[in-house]
Amino acid sequence: MSNAHAVVLFGHGARDPEWARPMRRTRDHLHTLAPGLRVELAFLEFMTPTLDEAIAALVHDGVRHITVVPMFIAQGGHLKSDVPRLIGAARERHVGCEIALAQAVGEADGVIAAMAEYALASSGASAA
């Protein structure tokens, strides 16, 4: 394995493929910011690839450091139980590969600030 790094943007998934458009846009923006960084999408249900499939493909390609970024607004049930279980199973299957789990994207201070600024701008009100 190499010292290559990758990011997996992990979302819930939906039956409508257009649901993943913001995730694809985020992936594309990441490619602009870090052209050499491998960025994959993965989904909990309804869409493919699954998290396990995305991680397995990265490991197969020699990636040794993987950060899973949950594209969730908050730390709900899936992030409290399902995702840690999935990450634990992936770590057991891919010994020697570092698999990190970031906090839910919606809980990051910068994202919260951006959402507040967007809500303010959408409201037509002005900041104090």
Rank of each mutant, 00 (worst) to 15 (best):
F43S: 03
I112L: 00
I73N: 10
H29W: 14
G96T: 02
A14R: 11
R24V: 01
E18S: 11
A56H: 09
A90S: 04
M23Q: 08
A127E: 01
R85S: 06
H29M: 02
A74P: 02
P17Q: 14
M115H: 00
G110A: 09
P22W: 07
A116Y: 07
R21T: 02
A4D: 01
W19P: 01
T32M: 12
D109H: 12
L120M: 03
A121D: 02
H29R: 14
A127F: 00
A42T: 01
H31M: 03
I66A: 09
M47Q: 07
V59H: 14
A108S: 08
A6K: 14
T26P: 04
T67M: 13
D52H: 08
A125Y: 06
G76A: 05
L30I: 03
E117Y: 05
A102V: 01
V68A: 08
V69F: 13
A34C: 15
I73Y: 13
H78Y: 11
R24G: 04
A128P: 11
D82R: 08
A57W: 15
L33C: 03
T67Q: 13
H60I: 04
R24C: 01
D16E: 08
N3K: 13
S122I: 00
A90E: 06
H94Q: 11
E107P: 01
G88A: 06
H94F: 05
A128K: 12
R27T: 02
P22Y: 01
G36L: 08
A14V: 00
E107Q: 13
P49R: 09
E45L: 06
K80W: 12
T50K: 10
S122G: 01
A104L: 14
L86R: 09
G106K: 03
A108N: 05
P49D: 04
A90P: 00
C97I: 11
A119F: 11
P84F: 13
S81D: 08
R85W: 06
A108V: 00
L9S: 02
E117R: 15
A42I: 00
M71I: 02
R24I: 01
G13E: 10
T48N: 03
A127W: 00
L51Q: 06
E40S: 08
P70F: 10
I55G: 09
A102C: 04
V95Q: 12
R25W: 10
R38C: 03
R91Y: 14
F10T: 05
R15E: 04
E18K: 13
V105K: 11
F10G: 06
M115Y: 00
A128T: 06
E98C: 04
Q75I: 03
H60A: 07
A121H: 14
T32A: 12
M71F: 02
T26N: 08
M115D: 00
D28N: 04
A102R: 07
V59E: 15
L58K: 12
E117S: 05
E53A: 15
L37S: 14
D52I: 01
A102Q: 06
K80D: 01
F43N: 02
H31A: 06
H31Y: 07
V39E: 04
D82M: 04
D16P: 01
E53D: 15
T32N: 12
Q75Y: 15
T48L: 03
I55S: 10
G76N: 07
G96S: 08
R25Y: 15
V63F: 06
T26A: 07
S81G: 06
V111G: 06
P49T: 02
P22N: 06
H12D: 02
A125E: 02
P84M: 12
L86F: 07
V111M: 11
R93A: 11
S81E: 11
T50V: 02
A104H: 14
